[in-house]
């Protein structure tokens, strides 16, 4: 049962999820790490948003999965229906339950599936849509604490799981990400041991923006920390700590 406790910090959790061999393994790890009851990843196969042949991985018990499939609950499940129409992460309490979905929720309850949850819609540059959902039968108070403590980590993990799913589904390896000039500069100065404040001063941008570029670089490289991003960027020859990045062209300011 959920008690809001987290077993490892974000970086460790991210690295362990990233190291998993499959989406199933990754969501199982995430479910255990964050002590929620269930985690489900759902990729809509088509860009038009219909979910006829979706890619789904879940930690729900097999009995509930077969019941869900048998009764074709995907047609009624309001979380799925709205989840693929929403773009912003949402708490299930935001979802208006139509009368037609009452039976579905009663049936879920019979299977000990909690009605509290949080879903994170994922949209990638290829306009693929996915949804990572966390659910629990915990009390409202505990759920509020768990959610407040982990929301930002879950959002990052949703995108990590999505990248994993795309690779699992379509095969191949991660292409070398294209980083922009500012991202490269921020990583370069981080590689030399500069913190956000110094990086911001050197580049003449705000600390918040410097942090934004570093987060963006970290996201594109799929890394949990700045040091991991710096070492991967060095390995991929995106940066070279011995050479100052070239300042291409004139600045528009």
């Amino acid at each position: 049962m959920s008690n809001g406790s987290v077993k490892t910090n974000f970086e460790t959790a991210f690295d362990r999820a990233k190291g998993c061999n499959s989406v199933q393994e990754a969501i199982t790890f995430i479910q255990q790490n964050y002590a929620v009851d269930y985690v489900t990843y759902h990729l809509a196969q088509t860009v038009s948003g219909t979910f006829d042949a979706p890619f789904v991985r879940t930690t729900y018990p097999p009995e509930w999965v077969s019941c869900y499939l048998l009764k074709n609950y995907i047609q009624t499940d309001p979380i799925i229906r709205e989840g693929f129409e929403r773009q912003m992460p949402f708490d299930w309490r935001e979802v208006t339950i139509p009368p037609s979905a009452q039976t579905f929720f009663e049936d879920a309850k019979l299977h000990n599936i909690g009605d509290k949850g949080y879903s994170i819609p994922v949209r990638d540059k290829g306009n693929r849509r996915a949804l990572l959902s966390f659910s629990t039968a915990a009390s409202e108070d505990i759920w509020d604490i768990t959610l407040a403590a982990n929301r930002d980590a879950w959002i990052e993990l949703a995108h990590l799981v999505h990248k994993k799913a795309v690779l699992e589904l379509h095969g191949g390896t991660d292409p070398i990400p294209v980083l922009g000039r500012r991202e490269i500069e921020c990583l370069y100065w981080s590689a030399l041991g500069k913190d956000h404040k110094s990086v911001a001063r050197i580049l003449g941008i705000s600390q918040h923006t410097a942090r934004g570029y570093i987060k963006s670089a970290r996201y594109k490289l799929g890394c949990s920390s700045i040091s991991a991003a710096v070492s991967l960027a060095t390995k991929l020859r995106i940066i070279n700590p011995n050479i100052v990045p070239a300042n291409e062209g004139t600045h528009m300011r």
């Binding site: 949703a158 500012r182 934004g212 570029y213 963006s216 996201y219 528009m252």
Partner: peptide, 14 residues
């Protein structure tokens, strides 16, 4: 082309 520095910012929280 116009805002290369802006388009570099790609991340779930941006």
């Amino acid at each position: 082309q116009t805002f290369p520095e802006a388009v570099d910012l790609v991340e779930p929280g941006i």
